[in-house]
């Protein structure tokens, strides 16, 4: 029942290999040590709440979630979701037909490659990186009734620069703002890089982030599309070049746009330092154009020149992918 939490600055891979290296006289031995000793008597170097092992908590594990006696019980079907109903009744058949291409085959993505074994050093060497790309890509499955795209979750995060330049307390209004807008409890967001011009250092609390799922996601999406986006000044839509190639679309809202959320607009005097939002739609679409089609069906406008990355041929002709390059039937010659 112990919660293992790796300390900062240690590599997980090192911890997994610690079983072979923990008994050593070398000066660098402590950094390879496992947080739990494996020789009797066992001493934990990681703190955990011992009280959760009490027998009175054992019944909590046996009570299912739907039981009101469970501490995890949450009333589920409290209101209908018109976004979900719309997707089920209307959008899913439309999207299936729009994305349909006849006799489609599974298109294998770029994967890590085996070494050919010409050198004895190839044994135990890490796999070769994918051809043409440093990152492995997932397979693209045929578009069937099982792979109709939908929005799984929405990530919303904010970055408050004043938490860096002034005081860490400036995070509090941003965090509360995200919580009020989305209805989900936010988690602190930490800076990943240090930028000297911004006086920003790494691993500082500089904002908040939430992942919205379920009914709250639908509510947020409807509010965004119907209340906020139409009233943002000079708003053209989401850029067609946005996306991470795998069906997740991101865009940003200015502080002026954030002020248009009903929760903020109802009492604007309460909110002194409003920050902008970064919003990411996580969808099950396999490519970005399919994700854009899905979002446009939900009322999200798009503008600009479209970017096609990782998009298979839509003509229905036979295609193969060799070493990261897509070959169509006509271009084989």
């Amino acid at each position: 029942m112990a919660f293992f939490k790796p300390s900062f600055g240690t590599d997980l891979r090192r911890q997994s290999t610690a079983f072979f290296q923990c008994r050593s006289l070398h000066s660098s031995a402590p950094q390879f040590k496992s947080p739990v000793s494996i020789v009797h008597p066992v001493h934990h170097r990681v703190r955990y709440k011992k009280s959760i092992l009490h027998p009175k908590y054992q019944t909590l594990l046996t009570i299912p979630k739907w039981d009101p006696r469970s501490h995890l019980f949450k009333p589920q079907a409290v209101q209908p979701s018109r976004v979900k109903t719309h997707w089920e009744t209307t959008l899913a058949p439309d999207l299936m037909l729009a994305n349909y291409s006849h006799n489609e085959l599974k298109l294998r993505g770029r994967k890590h490659q085996e070494w050919d074994g010409s050198s004895p050093y190839h044994v135990n060497r890490p796999l070769r990186s994918p051809a043409g790309n440093a990152m492995a890509t997932p397979d693209i499955l045929p578009r069937t009734f099982r792979t109709v795209p939908f929005v799984t979750s929405i990530w919303v995060n904010t970055f408050n620069h004043r938490a860096v330049t002034e005081h860490a307390e400036r995070n509090i209004p941003s965090t509360v703002m995200i919580q009020q807008i989305t209805g989900v409890k936010p988690a602190p967001a930490y800076s990943g890089v240090s930028i000297m011009q911004w006086r920003l250092r790494k691993e500082r609390n500089v904002g908040a982030v939430v992942e919205i799922k379920g009914a709250k996601k639908d509510q947020f999406l409807a509010t965004l599309v119907e209340v906020v986006m139409p009233r943002v000044k000079d708003f053209q839509g989401i850029a067609n070049s946005s996306g991470d190639k795998f069906g997740n679309i991101s865009f940003g809202l200015d502080p002026e746009g954030v002020r248009l959320f009903p929760e903020i607009e109802g009492n604007p005097d309460l909110w002194s330092g409003i920050t902008g939002l970064n919003i990411t739609f996580v969808t099950t679409a396999q490519t970005d154009p399919e994700a854009r089609l899905l979002l446009s069906s939900l009322g999200v406008p798009f503008y600009g020149r479209e970017r096609f990355h990782n998009v298979p041929n839509l003509d229905g002709t036979k295609q193969t992918r060799k070493k990261g390059v897509v070959y169509y039937e006509n271009s084989q010659e």
């Binding site: 018109r82 976004v83 719309h86 729009a98 291409s101 006849h102 409807a222 599309v225 119907e226 067609n240 154009p289 854009r292 089609l293 446009s296 069906s297 939900l298 009322g299 406008p301 798009f302 479209e306 096609f308 998009v311 839509l314 003509d315 229905g316």
Partner: peptide
């Protein structure tokens, strides 16, 4: 089978 590469729903489309 010849379909446009980028498809969009009409902007008037509403939930």
């Amino acid at each position: 089978m010849d379909k446009p590469k980028s498809l969009r729903f009409p902007p008037e489309y509403r939930i």
